[in-house]
Write a protein that binds this DNA or RNA. Structure first.
Lengths: 227, 227
DNA sequence: CGGCATATTGATGTCTATCAAATGGCGTGG
DNA sequence: CCACGCCATTTGATAGACATCAATATGCCG
């Protein structure tokens, strides 16, 4: 049920060396100047209970936030894709950890600087509030998925990805592993895998590779084309 | 699985007559002047997709927010108890419906008035943001419950109630039915009932009545006493 | 080619849902 | 005050979905 061996966790624990390519300035979220950063696959962006010093925007790649339960299981709270802003599950300290799902570039903006500007720029204050409210809605959508059947959860996840993820004309490219999907949906990796297979057998999707999903269903194709 | 018969829904649909005891002014959340209102058991406070005109604070009683799934099941998103502020699952429109769990008094404040004041009172803007962030954390806690076993979910729910609910020296008074609890935890009423029985048989709780829960476990008693 | 991580498939067990019935609590009217 | 009816809750029997344990397959990189 739990996700990673001690060994792989250790590997993940040397993220500092993976940070590179710092340039002092770049356009960040909320029109702020931010710091571009690179994170290697599985490296930590921030840890649970750390002081929340920054807000982040994904430039390329993908990010997962997660918490580890007492029994060792990992619950992924969200995936963030290019353009998404994250780091909002926080007021003073983060309530989840964040890691790069794959090679990822983000822009970081100092939270304190935003707060200062927000005190006299009412528009910015409103944007920050809205972003948090949107995150709340996203969390509630996620919660609604978790009470449904395995098939519904996987289909719901694919719908979401079809709307948000990097995609070609015919397929979605999933940046995350089956284990990541399982930990997001509260299922085991075996159940996720079996559900993918079953969706393929039912002609709802096809799987040219395990990370590439073509949606054969009209409703899903519409989602794929929209936005 | 679903919760209410058509008949009982109809009964719930005459809430207007249940509103009474309107006084023009009372101290509301965020130091605002608000309108006190009474709602009868099971009456609607607002509906999903309604314009979000107000924020609310519970004075007495209890409120549930919920969404109905396509298959007819009801998912309760949160319970709000005296002192709690709700109505934040919204930017323009509500994303859930709200109902009184039992005879309930709330104070309503106009969202628009708050927004106006928030533009020049930076402290108020910050309070609104914080309240939304807290709601986000609450939602994430709820989400973490839903991936656990039935027993863990019920225990987690009781922990939360022990911290928040009206309580005597020795017991918690639950304002909500087993069905409400089931719909909050993503379980059936039968499983919730069996889990209560089993917790009692294991000496973890005792149930003088179905709505009154005494915590026999030290960790839970500590929660009961704290806060 | 070999080694390792990821993914799939198979066999079996457990937990919770479902269907069904019995019990308990409480207000109303006789 | 008691009997009845209604609703909430509990209990029982069974089925189904997903987890678990185990093995095999696939892909990737050195």
């Amino acid at each position: 049920m739990h996700t990673q061996t001690a060994a792989s966790l250790e590997i993940n624990r040397r993220p500092s060396s993976s940070i590179s390519s710092r340039q002092p300035h770049a356009e960040g979220p909320f029109g702020m100047t931010g710091t571009p950063m690179r994170f290697a696959r599985n490296s930590e962006i921030y840890g649970e209970d750390e002081a929340a010093g920054y807000l982040y925007q994904v430039v390329s790649g993908a990010v997962r936030t997660y918490k580890i339960l007492e029994d060792g299981r990992r619950q992924i709270g969200a995936f963030y894709l290019p353009g998404d802003i994250f780091g909002f599950e926080a007021s003073e300290t983060h309530i989840a950890s964040a890691e790069a799902v794959c090679e990822t570039r983000v822009i970081m903006v100092k939270r304190a600087a935003l707060m200062v500007r927000a005190t006299h720029e009412k528009d910015l204050a409103r944007q920050l509030w809205d972003a948090t409210a949107q995150e709340l809605r996203r969390s509630q959508e996620h919660l609604m998925l978790l009470i449904r059947s395995a098939e519904d959860r996987v289909v719901g996840f694919l719908h979401d990805m079809a709307r948000r993820a990097v995609k070609t004309a015919t397929a979605i490219e999933l940046p995350m592993s089956r284990q990541d999907i399982a930990d997001y949906l509260g299922l085991t990796i075996e159940t996720v895998s079996r559900t993918f297979t079953q969706l393929e057998q039912n002609g709802i999707i096809s799987l040219p590779t395990s990370r590439r999903v073509e949606l054969r269903n009209r409703a899903m194709q519409n989602r794929l084309m929209a936005a």
